[in-house]
Design a protein around this nucleic acid. Structure first.
Lengths: 200, 200
DNA sequence: CAATAAGTGTTGCTTAGTCAACATTTTCGT
DNA sequence: ACGAAAATGTTGACTAAGCAACACTTATTG
């Protein structure tokens, strides 16, 4: 049960980190998720199997977190630390999403196609989190008072817009480059944002 | 208190590993041991400061373990896995000791000269352990029955012989090469061993 | 197909790691 | 040389990780 464990506890952070890293290592070796067992993961992470189950429902639960984790890492590499909501950071975010989708489609074996939904949920969630943070930080600066609910809904809509366009593009033949796509998406997103927040 | 913790417990192994790695990282950054605090180490290892004290007396206690750890790592790299007592493994062992001393003298700043005794104890202990293992394995093969006490004393004497010659050599101008020294030491050691164990 | 081996979740009980608070001691700037 | 700030050890109460044993569900393979 992922419940009853305190996310702030350093041991918990470390254990989850170890499990994520173990999965990364095993995916490189074994090459398909199917042939990796919970035992393998726990052993590699130097964590008891029971501890695994204290953190994740099963190995698919871990995979979901792992996908967020990898995408999160990408964003950390691509975005300036403590970036704020601006035209160019938004641009970088969108580019990162398109790039991530492109790479992932190459690396994921057809046998693992079944996990795409998991992967997609993870990415969308992460985009949402970043946007929400940016929006909230922006609010402090601009004196315009907008309800928290409005902000959250806006983040939802925009995150889906970015995520969905990238997902669909990656499924197609990608005749249009990621850069071109990102440019188009950016202009739409900025326009969509204008009623609530002004981006400069 | 290093007592009351079970060395077999996976959490204990992991914690000690984390502390050793943290020290390695900090030594590369900070460049002298003096300017590294227990707080730094605990923080880097993602371990509570109180946990540090549950494993080591103080930072010098950790340093002692760290030195053994590094020397142990070197032996693992230089010696074949599950090596047995033979002329060439003995030669490799002696060479490794001389090499380790030479490198350490280069890397250790004059400011850290005070820790040499710690370092030396660590190396001697490790040599002793390796020799003892080899001797005991050999015993099983040869049918000659020699008391365990005799074996242990022999390991002590030989470990000091190897260690001491390398230590003294490293303090001098090293006009004789490590290879030459190792060769001489080897012949003496083999001769010294002959009453108890025959090395081929 | 049957036997058996290997993996999955789950459950108390034990032990190590975390935390906050405390009284020292050491370090360092003015 | 002095006083503040930082580092050191120590303690007891709390929480997460480890373990072993369990019933159960897949995979292997003879």
């Amino acid at each position: 049960m992922a419940t009853s464990v305190n996310l702030g506890d350093p041991r918990v952070k470390r254990t989850r980190q170890l499990l994520l890293q173990a999965l990364t290592a095993l995916l490189e070796e074994k090459q398909n998720f199917h042939s990796i067992s919970v035992q393998d993961i726990a052993e590699r992470a130097t964590v008891n199997r029971a501890t695994f189950y204290a953190h994740f429902e099963d190995k698919y639960g871990l995979l979901e977190s792992w996908m967020r984790y990898k995408f999160h890492q990408k964003l950390e590499r691509q975005l300036p630390v403590s970036a704020t909501l601006q035209l160019n950071t938004l641009h970088l975010l969108i580019l990162a999403v398109f790039d991530f989708f492109a790479r992932f489609r190459q690396n994921f074996k057809p046998a693992d196609r079944q996990f795409e939904p998991l992967f997609e949920v993870a990415v969308q969630q992460e985009i949402y989190d970043v946007l929400l943070t940016w929006f909230n930080d922006k609010e402090v600066v601009s004196e315009v008072s907008v309800g928290q609910e409005t902000v959250e809904i806006t983040a939802q809509v925009i995150s889906w817009a970015i995520f969905g366009s990238a997902a669909q593009w990656s499924r197609g033949s990608q005749t249009i480059s990621a850069e071109e796509m990102a440019h188009h998406v950016l202009s739409v997103v900025v326009a969509g944002l204008s009623p609530v927040i002004t981006v400069t």
